[in-house]
Each structure stands twice: as structure tokens, then as C-alpha cells.
Design a protein around this nucleic acid. Structure first.
Lengths: 223, 223
DNA sequence: GATTGTATACATGTATACAATAATACTACC
DNA sequence: GGTAGTATTATTGTATACATGTATACAATC
């Protein structure tokens, strides 16, 4: 185990009806299997997932706190859903937050984590050469997660992890085109260099370029 | 009633044990009556607030979703709390978000809301002359709330309202010094002018000045 | 014919009872 | 005396039963 602090995140993987329901319902909302405006009657969910109302209610309360549901007292929970415009806004917000994350991360990163970042970057170089797009997507996620962690701001981590789930399915499961790999690597290198130079603004600027590149590539594929 | 959309917010004022508990516990965490790291045993809360475990659990789940509690499966909920550094970070995040809010608000505000903003501003002028610091604080909050609403981004509103509660008690109940009123009014005027000019960047710049002014004033008082 | 009042049905809010898991204390053994 | 294993206790997780509030349908009145 790495550290006591991470314990709860590991424990999160444990099964519990309440937690499972939360995840499933969130997934269903984000994939629009549950349409915006739709009412989520507790009884119906109980029957659908074969559980009692207690875990259902707890899951609904959590989703409401995350803003995915709108609950009206004594009337029930209604799916909020995300419009096309909402998604665009979220991208902007994510960019803003991610820039701050990298600034803080550069200022605050520990030697241990910096070594870890180096390791991740080496993996990136390796898999770029191997042209393994799947692995690259996975490592890319780790790269960003490490930056969030290094930013050492709980609030920010919380926000960004929400975004992560919001936009998860908006970027196709298909990770990235093989042809883009070198460009992606170069973008990450700029970020990584900023960490070594301990230059927060350079890092923010590199991150901005990376995010905009990612968006351009995503639009290039889907549109 | 203004519009159907606001119904849930009004309904929020209704009493329910679950909702009341949520508010009280949040208050207790933010005021550090409940110390960071402290364990919140369900039974204890039940006895303290004379309610059953069901509403207690629901309140805890919501607080956990907001990041004020850390829950470990089968072990319970622990207060996260905010360090001095956390608060400083939150100010930075709030500034970032508020700048984006005003940009969007200027781009998206409806004529109706613009009229409302004008009205609020006139109230500000009025109460500045009357040197009513209490009213000014109240109206200031409305001013900002209207901007959040005009930004027309649910996610952003959600984040900013969280911040609002986080920092609520960090800025003393005592609103602002009488001597500061003219400066505050001038700052708001710059923001308001940007709305009329429909200049998003001018608005962001004015808002930045306002926030930094507010921080300087706050530090000047408390330190 | 439209509207309002009431009764019934239904959904949510809360309390309690039961099951499963983790923490603790005690005993036995090394 | 210390450690490991087990039994007990306490706390969380889940299910069910009851209370309260809301929506709908029907009837009575204007």
C-alpha cells in the first residue's frame, strides 16, 4: 500500500448496493439511457435493480448533490441531463481548472511524485513507438491524474473528477488515432519540461496547448 | 412566482429532517465545531438530533458527495475539514470561476435579467449613500447571484454555490466597513458598465479587481 | 360547462428491525 | 510478557413497515 491516505479510494472498489446503484444510475444518466426530465420513482428503481428503497434513496441523494439529479421535496427526483451547450461549457471549465491544477502541481509536487511522472512519461515514449493507442490513452489518464494529485487541492480534484465522468462518454471509447501519437507525446513533453524547470506559467501554457490539441483531434474524428 | 424553473429552489426551504440535518452538519463542519478527522458515528448523531438513522445516513451521503466528509465503507464517515491552505486555494478557484461566470453572463444575459441587474445597482447606490453596510452586503450577494444565474451554466452555479458555503463563515458576519462602501460601489459600477458595453473581457477584468479588492479589505479587517 | 372541494391512491419521508462487517477485548499459547 | 487467535461487541449496510404529504379523479356547486 502506498499511503494511508489512499485507503478510502481503494475501499471504494468494494461492493455495496448503494455504491453500485450510484455508479449505474450515473452511467445511465450520462449515456442518456435515462432521459433528461425523466422522473426516477424509487419503487421502479427498486424493482429494476432488485434492492430495497434504502440504498436507492442514498444513491439518489448523492447524485442530486453532484448535480445530475434535481430533487423536489415530496415529489421525487428528476434527471438533469446535459445539453450540447452544457458539454461545451464543461470543456471550458475543465480547461480553466486544469490550468490551475498544473500551476499548483508544478509549485507543490514532491520528489517522489516527480519521479513517478518521469516514469509515466517514459512509458509514453515507449508506447508511442509501439503505436499502442489503447495503452497511450490509459497512460494519458494517469498522467493527468498524477497532476491533479500533485496539485494537492482536494477541492480541485473533486471538481475535475466530476468533469471526468461527465465527459467520459463524450470522448469515444476509441482512444486516439495512431497518427496523432507523436503530437500527443510532444505536448506532454512540454508539460513535463515545465515541471523540471519548475515554471508554473510555462506549464499552464503547455497544458493549454495540449487541451486545445486534444479538442481539435476529438472534433476532427467525430465531426 | 417568477418561473416554474425556480420551483425547486423555493421548495428547498421546506422542512425535512434529512435536509435540516444536512444543513446543520455542514454548518458544524464549516465552523469546525466538528473537528477535521473526527468520526461521525450515526448513532451519536441520531441521539444528538433526536432522529432515526435513515435521515442521518442520507445527510451523510450528501455531505460526502460534496467533499466535506470522507466515507469509508463499513467504517463510517470522517470530517474532512479545511486547512488554512485549503481556504486560500478556494479563494483562487473562486476567482477563476467567477471570472468565467461574468464572461458568460455578459455574453448570455437576457434583457429581463439585465434590467434586474440595473435595479440591483440602483439599490447599491442608494444604500451606499445611506451608509447601510448590512443592506449592502445583502445586495452584493444578490448582485453576484444574478451573475451566476445569467452565466446560464448549471455546473458553474453548482461549484460557486459550494464555494459560497465554504467561505461563508470565513468572511465575518460583520459585512464591510462603512468607509469601504464607495470603493465597493465603484468596483460594481465597472462590472455593470461592462454588461452595458457587452464587453466580456472588460467584465472579467473588472471582476478581478473587485475580488482582489474584497480580499484586501477582508485581510485588512481580520489581520 | 368550468371550477372548487373532497376522497382515494400513490409516492416520498421516517422509524425500526435484521444482517453483515469491522473493531475490541479476552484468553490461550508460545 | 508478548503475540496470535477467537469470541464478543459495536457499527455500518439493508430491508420492511408506518406516517405524511402530494397528485389525481370524481362529485358538488356556482
Amino acid at each position: 500500500m502506498k499511503a494511508g491516505i489512499h485507503r478510502s479510494e481503494e475501499a471504494r472498489a468494494l461492493h455495496s448496493l448503494s455504491r453500485d446503484l450510484f455508479d449505474k444510475l450515473r452511467e445511465d444518466i450520462l449515456t442518456e439511457r435515462l432521459k433528461p426530465g425523466e422522473k426516477l420513482a424509487e419503487q421502479r428503481i427498486c424493482e429494476a435493480y432488485k434492492v430495497s428503497r434504502t440504498p436507492v434513496r442514498e444513491a439518489l441523494k448523492q447524485l442530486a448533490a453532484e448535480g445530475l439529479l434535481e430533487t423536489i421535496p415530496n415529489r421525487g427526483a428528476f434527471v438533469s441531463g446535459l445539453s450540447r451547450g452544457d458539454l461545451e461549457d464543461i470543456f471550458v471549465l475543465r480547461e480553466i481548472c486544469e490550468l490551475q491544477a498544473v500551476r499548483w502541481a508544478i509549485e507543490r509536487i514532491t520528489d517522489e511524485r516527480l519521479a513517478e511522472l518521469f516514469e509515466i512519461f517514459e512509458f509514453m515514449e515507449f508506447y508511442t513507438e509501439k503505436r499502442d493507442t489503447k495503452k497511450m490513452t490509459e497512460i494519458n489518464a494517469n498522467f493527468h491524474k498524477l497532476i491533479y494529485a500533485a496539485s494537492d487541492c482536494r477541492m480541485l480534484r473533486h471538481i475535475l473528477s466530476s468533469y471526468q465522468t461527465y465527459i467520459r462518454h463524450s470522448r469515444q471509447t476509441e482512444p486516439c488515432a495512431e497518427a496523432d501519437l507523436p503530437a500527443i507525446l510532444a505536448e506532454h513533453k512540454r508539460i513535463f519540461d515545465a515541471f523540471h524547470a519548475a515554471d508554473a506559467e510555462a506549464g499552464a501554457s503547455a497544458m493549454r496547448a495540449h487541451i486545445r490539441g486534444a479538442r481539435a483531434r476529438a472534433l476532427g474524428h467525430t465531426v
